[in-house]
Amino acid sequence: MTKRKYNYLPFLLVAPAILMLISITIFPLMWSFFTSLKKMSLLDLMTHGGRYIGFKNYLYMPHDPLFWNAIKNSIIFVGISVIGQVTMGVILASFLHSKLMRFSGLYRAIFLIPWIASSVIVAYSWIYIFDTNLGFLPTLSANSRILQLLGLARRDWLTNSSIVIYVLSFINIWKGTAFSVLMESAGFQSIPDSLYEAAEVDGATAFERFYLITLPLLKPFILINLIMTTMITFNVYDLILVITSGGPAHASEVLSLFTYNTGFSKGELGYASALSIILLLINLTITSLYLIFFRQKEEAV
């Protein structure tokens, strides 16, 4: 009886990738989960003194008004940012793809600038636009009839708790639209010109061509764009940290920033870990919902 020789080579070849995945994704995730089951401060971290408290950090969350405040702010911030970025992405990409558009490569490069710029630089640029005391918009609004007529003659863009989150969403749309433009541009390039030519011969209007050809064929790209933009936006904290630090009085504190502040400013590592797990679960849920929704639509078609 001959012994069957087992081929280990495939396992050896994928081993580095698996090890990498374990060390930089799975292990930190597990560590974060175990930390979330502890009452642990920075001091406890150093003295290995954290206390196991089961799911108390999770059970405390519904009773924490700052958590609900962060959830509300995140929904507004992510909702507006995603809708704004994806819509702007589709519109700008369709312009860039238009045959009438010249120098589209140049425009694409210009659109990319806010996206590749460091969040800190972007944040300070907008501080000097919106800040009550230093911003040029509040200064301009005092004397500008046009701004006054448009209802933009105000000074409290970043200090009014009712509007600050919308202002930050706008800044985030400005910064993130380039990513959507890139994604949608790839989609536009994948649509064969012959389809448009055929539609033109059939007498389809520009709107019909967009609605009946472009949009359905762009759908997979829009889906990926939606998922990725949602995930990226849910994790945005640096931009807000520099511009408002989550203020005034937590009015612009989104969940990711709340997690950061809880862990690194207050030093409550256990609760911050629990928040980060919840953030991960929210991301996973939204991604799954998008996928299910689009799959159902595709099956219906």
């Binding site: 511009i243 203020g247 005034p248």
Partner: peptide
């Protein structure tokens, strides 16, 4: 007014406003 002093990001930005005659 509250919006003048709630200038959000950090002390340096606020101090700059003072030096700019705010």
């Amino acid at each position: 007014a509250p919006e003048d002093v709630l200038s959000p990001s950090n002390g340096a930005v606020y101090d700059e406003a003072f030096l700019n005659g705010k």
